[in-house]
Amino acid sequence: MPGDMSYTTEEISKLLKISKLTVYDLIKKGELSSYRVGKQMRVDAADLEAYKQRARTKTNANRPDGANQPLRSLPSASINAIRPIVITGHDIGLDILAKHMEKHIAGIRPLRSFVGSLDSLISMYRGESDIVSTHLLDGDTGEYNLPYIRRLLVGSSYIVVNLLSRNAGLYVEQGNPLQLEHWTDLSRQGLRFVNREKGSGARVLLDEQLRLHGINPGQLDGYDNEQTNHLGVASKVASGEADVGVGIEKAASIVGQLDFIPLIRERYDLVMLKSTENQAWIHSVLQILQSMEFKQELQTISGYDLSRTGEILLETLEPSF
């Protein structure tokens, strides 16, 4: 193989005849060396051959007859009997969910992927994630998440369940010296803004509010100044590097030294694809979400509304197999 050849995770999946989730798990555990190019993981041909050689050695060492036969394929069960479950999103509630899943569901290993709401749904469409979190506002209907899910997961069978609700709004300087109170205030001249990245729920919320209130994004000084999480936006405002940003209340309480102006109650939901192999752990996840043990732990975090936690909001028909 040429020394400069490399493969995507999808190509590795096809070459080894294993799922993409298993490829990500091998990378996560350090068994398969990789590097990132933009948003894409790549594996050099030499590293793939090194992994295959180690797998051959391990397989042959375990043969009773010591036969040295070529390794034709690596089914996921032979590499690791534990099924990786990829959970996307940034909220700490997802970390708590992952901990409860690891404790109560045998045969799975939760893996966290820190990507925004829209990118999470796209990753599910591509088969790269198992549980995605989303808080995407549809400005025309005022509905959260379901309009986007229906459009992006056309033809899929899935279940949508509420994790929590929380306040979203504006981060402003402590004492709110500029008296910012509403989305329309973002049209003021001279405001220094800090934004979230494209695909995040906060970015969609901002863009929808700008559209609904007739504000051109080009009017915002700092619209292209992006941070990859709520804490980053809140920190820029707290440090005085920006006058205002959009995010959730929890991040303001963590960062401190700034004020939070609540403007909307957003619903933070989970989406899980229904399939024969997923049904068992999906049922267990629903039991966790609806359990008092899980809700009591979430209740220790200020700013969360758990009145609908565990409620199934939408479930499509069973897939036919």
Rank of each mutant, 00 (worst) to 15 (best):
L146Y: 00
A50I: 10
S157I: 01
S13N: 12
H135L: 04
G247M: 07
P64H: 04
T184P: 00
Y148P: 01
D65L: 14
L137E: 07
R267H: 06
Q179W: 01
N176E: 04
D65W: 14
L313C: 02
S157M: 00
D119M: 09
D119C: 10
E315Y: 06
D243G: 05
P2Y: 00
L164R: 14
R126K: 10
D224G: 06
M272Q: 03
E293Q: 15
L313D: 01
E31C: 05
I85M: 07
S78D: 12
L97M: 13
L191Q: 11
Y24I: 02
N225D: 15
L111A: 00
E10R: 13
R188Q: 14
L164I: 15
I27T: 03
E315V: 07
A67N: 13
L121C: 06
L26R: 14
E208M: 13
D95E: 14
I261M: 11
E293C: 02
S187W: 02
L289Q: 07
L263N: 03
V204R: 13
Q219N: 04
R308L: 12
E241K: 15
S123F: 09
G38D: 08
S200A: 06
L71Y: 05
E315I: 09
P75F: 04
S34I: 08
L74R: 05
L205K: 09
T22W: 00
L163Y: 05
T22V: 00
V233E: 10
A50M: 14
R63T: 03
G38Q: 06
R126P: 01
G303T: 11
G116Q: 10
P319G: 08
Q40A: 14
G240S: 05
G155K: 11
I122F: 11
R83D: 08
R151G: 08
K198P: 01
D305E: 04
G256N: 10
K58Q: 14
D4I: 08
M101Q: 06
G256E: 12
L146F: 00
L306H: 02
V246S: 10
L186P: 09
K28D: 15
T316W: 00
L306G: 11
D305N: 14
E181N: 14
T309Y: 00
V161G: 03
F260K: 02
S239A: 12
E143W: 02
G201N: 05
Q296K: 12
Q296S: 11
L289P: 07
I79N: 08
N225T: 12
L163E: 07
P2F: 00
G89H: 03
H230Q: 10
A238N: 05
N278E: 13
Y304A: 03
L48Q: 10
G93A: 13
L205Y: 07
S133L: 03
S129C: 10
Q189R: 10
P217D: 11
D4C: 02
P147N: 05
Q209D: 04
Y144H: 15
G310E: 03
D224F: 06
F114Q: 01
G175W: 09
H213S: 06
L136Y: 07
Y144L: 15
L71Q: 08
G214P: 08
D224Y: 04
S117D: 13
V255G: 07
V246R: 04
V154K: 15
Y171S: 06
E181C: 05
A242C: 05
S129P: 01
L270W: 15
Q179Y: 01
F114H: 07
L97K: 06
V161E: 04
K274S: 12
V233G: 02
F294S: 01
L306E: 12
P84I: 09
I27Y: 06
